[in-house]
Each structure stands twice: as structure tokens, then as C-alpha cells.
Amino acid sequence: MRGLFKRTAPAGAPDTAALGTDALALRVPSGTMVPHACIGLACGKGGATRRVEHGARLAAGDSKSAYCFHPGPYSIELTPFAAAPEIGLQLSFVVDDPDPRVAQQRFDLYLASEGGEGVSLAAFALAVDSALQRELAQGNLELPPCTTLDEWNLFRAGLNQLLYQRFGVTVEDCLPVDLGDRVDYAQLLLARAVDVRAKSAVSAPAPSVPALTDAQALRRLFLELPGVTSALRLVALPPGQALFRQHQALLQRLDGVALLFATMPSLELAAPGIALDVASRAARERHSAGAVLALDEAWSLAARFAHAPAASWFDDADRIVANLEHHGAGRRASEHA
């Protein structure tokens, strides 16, 4: 009769053996037992999250979704410059223990907003690569040839803050690596030739992160804009009325943008019972995608709050908020696009 009362996983539960190796997180059904060395996360419909320790049963209740994740450590390889794929970085990172100073951990928000059916290590590496390449291309991070120790330390500090603000992970180590023996240059040149014939940019684009659906984009904006606003609200400003007023104006505009996206119309409907035409639906999707790009830039900007004087990033903040306002207004007004 031994094993009569053995607990079994709920029907349809995913195999959690990949956690900590090939997967950071997996979506699981309510009632799943949190595996050893892992952490459970119940995500509410409004974005609230609750962690559950290993060995306990993850009862999601009225929550929208539930996840199990392994804190790591993990190791990934990055290509900071798309046009120079032989230059690589070996990155080790972990998901830290909860910070008691904040109401919600950034990694928990990342899972609630972007977790989907789970986060594989390969997909996460692609997202990190895309974020890093964008920051280097825009000059927000610098990794020059023959980097000095001071330049490397400055880059590392910026990279650490970027990955914490954008994904909620902490970098443990980062080392340069030569990936030249793994690059298929013939295939790379062929792909670039195709790009040129298609009148694309000659330089290689950022890694191709899968496009979000309109619903996924709106969910990200709904859940993450309050987090961006909170990060901006906590910025320590130097004395002076001018910066204070600019800061307050940005906060008010971000609050307006968050409310705008929280009350967005459905993708399919022009009015209750009236279907939206195809061209207008495409316009709504285009504006949602543009707003998410601005949201990613906002998180990247938040990573610079602690290391750069406020006067140096206010123009960027104004541009990002203006893009969010533009895409929010465009999506709402796209009924007759």
C-alpha cells in the first residue's frame, strides 16, 4: 500500500525538470507543487503577484496565471554588435531574493506581463541581446574597441542596471568571448545580400524577437506603465524649480498615458456589435507595437536614472512619453484609418 497517498501533479502539468537549465520559468496549472529549489508565482488579473516557496502547493485561486521559476544561476552568450557577430559576451545572471523595499519584484512583473506559456533560456537570451544591441546603437551604453578598464567598468555598471530594470535579473559575471569559430560568414553575407536587394538596412538588424499580438502589447502597457511611472517618481532631483516642474509634468503625462492604454477599445470592434475594418485593425496593431517599443525605451531610460544627472535624460524622457502619447492617441483614433 506504500505510495497510496502520494501526491501527483495535476493533469496537463508541464515537465518542470527543465527549470534551471533550458527554462527560466514555466506556466503551470493551479495545484502544482513547487519543485525543489524553485519558486512559485501567482499572477492576478490586475498585475498583482504573490510568491510561493518550494514544497508548497501553488493555488492560483482567482489569479490569471501561475508560474514556477528557478533563480539560477544561468549562463548565456550575447552578440553586442550585430554587424560583428564574432565579438561576444559570456553573461552569468540570477534572479535575486525579494527586495523588501519594493511592493513588487521586477522579475515578477516581467513574468506576469511577458511570461506567456513560459520563458526558455534561448528566448530570454534573444530578448537580452535585442535590448543590449539597441542601447549600444543609441549610444546609451558604450563598448569601444580596445576598451580600457574604466570603460569596461562603466559598461558593466550600465549593463547590470539595464538587465535589472528591464528583466529583473542580476548580473553575476560578464566576460568578453571570441565567437568567430561559430559564425557562418558565408550564410551571414548571403543574408545581408538578400537584405540589400530587399532595400533593407545594410547593417544587420537587432535579434528578431517574436512580434507581440495586439492583446499582448496592451497587456504589457497596462501592467508595466505604472512601474515605469513609479521608477520616475522615485528619482532624486537636485534643488531647483525648473527640474521639479519638468519632473511633475512628465509624471502627469505618464499617468495620462497609463489611463489611455488601460481603457483602449477592442482590436476587433469599432463600436459594440460593429466590426472594425481590416485597415483600421492594422493601424491599431501598428500603434500598439510602436507603443511597446517606446515602453522598452522607457525601461532602458529608467536604468540610467541612478547613474546620470537628471538634466541629461529629461529630453529622452520627453521624447519617449511623446511617442507613447502619439501611439496611444493613434490607436484610439484609428477607427477611420
Results as ranks from 00 to 15, higher is better:
residue 185 Y to C: 05
residue 322 A to H: 03
residue 167 F to A: 02
residue 88 G to H: 06
residue 327 H to P: 00
residue 140 N to F: 15
residue 132 L to F: 11
residue 284 R to E: 04
residue 254 L to H: 05
residue 226 P to N: 00
residue 111 L to F: 06
residue 106 R to L: 14
residue 164 Y to K: 07
residue 241 Q to Y: 08
residue 256 G to A: 14
residue 163 L to A: 06
residue 52 V to S: 09
residue 240 G to S: 06
residue 104 Q to R: 12
residue 95 V to A: 00
residue 195 D to N: 07
residue 208 S to Y: 06
residue 302 A to S: 13
residue 252 Q to C: 06
residue 179 L to P: 03
residue 203 S to I: 01
residue 129 D to K: 00
residue 167 F to E: 01
residue 149 L to D: 11
residue 37 A to V: 04
residue 322 A to F: 09
residue 182 R to I: 02
residue 83 A to R: 06
residue 10 P to L: 05
residue 105 Q to N: 09
residue 337 A to P: 01
residue 231 A to E: 07
residue 88 G to D: 05
residue 233 R to H: 14
residue 272 P to L: 06
residue 86 E to Y: 03
residue 135 E to F: 01
residue 247 H to M: 02
residue 263 T to E: 11
residue 326 H to W: 09
residue 43 C to G: 04
residue 141 L to T: 03
residue 107 F to I: 04
residue 177 V to S: 08
residue 235 V to I: 14
residue 45 K to M: 08
residue 333 A to R: 10
residue 38 C to K: 02
residue 248 Q to N: 09
residue 286 R to G: 02
residue 96 D to M: 09
residue 321 V to Y: 02
residue 133 Q to L: 12
residue 282 A to H: 12
residue 250 L to R: 03
residue 296 D to Y: 07
residue 8 T to L: 15
residue 100 P to S: 00
residue 208 S to E: 13
residue 47 G to Y: 10
residue 326 H to A: 09
residue 195 D to P: 04
residue 123 A to K: 08
residue 89 L to W: 07
residue 233 R to L: 06
residue 276 L to C: 13
residue 111 L to A: 10
residue 204 A to E: 09
residue 52 V to T: 12
residue 263 T to K: 02
residue 284 R to C: 03
residue 150 D to C: 03
residue 288 S to R: 13
residue 11 A to H: 07
residue 25 A to P: 12
residue 95 V to Y: 03
residue 52 V to Q: 04
residue 130 S to Q: 07
residue 18 A to G: 11
residue 151 E to N: 01
residue 332 R to T: 05
residue 161 Q to S: 15
residue 108 D to H: 04
residue 94 V to Q: 05
residue 60 A to G: 08
residue 76 I to M: 05
residue 191 A to K: 15
residue 60 A to R: 03
residue 266 S to A: 12
residue 294 A to W: 01
residue 103 A to C: 01
residue 149 L to H: 10
residue 7 R to H: 11
residue 155 F to H: 05
residue 78 L to P: 05
residue 2 R to N: 11
residue 31 G to K: 14
residue 168 G to Q: 11
residue 201 A to P: 01
residue 159 L to P: 02
residue 250 L to A: 08
residue 295 L to C: 07
residue 25 A to Y: 10
residue 97 D to A: 11
residue 107 F to W: 15
residue 125 A to Q: 14
residue 320 I to H: 07
residue 197 R to H: 12
residue 4 L to M: 14
residue 100 P to C: 00
residue 268 E to F: 09
residue 83 A to K: 08
residue 304 R to Y: 04
residue 161 Q to L: 12
residue 257 V to I: 11
residue 244 F to S: 14
residue 77 E to F: 09
residue 71 P to G: 05
residue 9 A to Q: 15
residue 266 S to F: 02
residue 314 F to E: 06
residue 301 L to R: 02
residue 71 P to W: 01
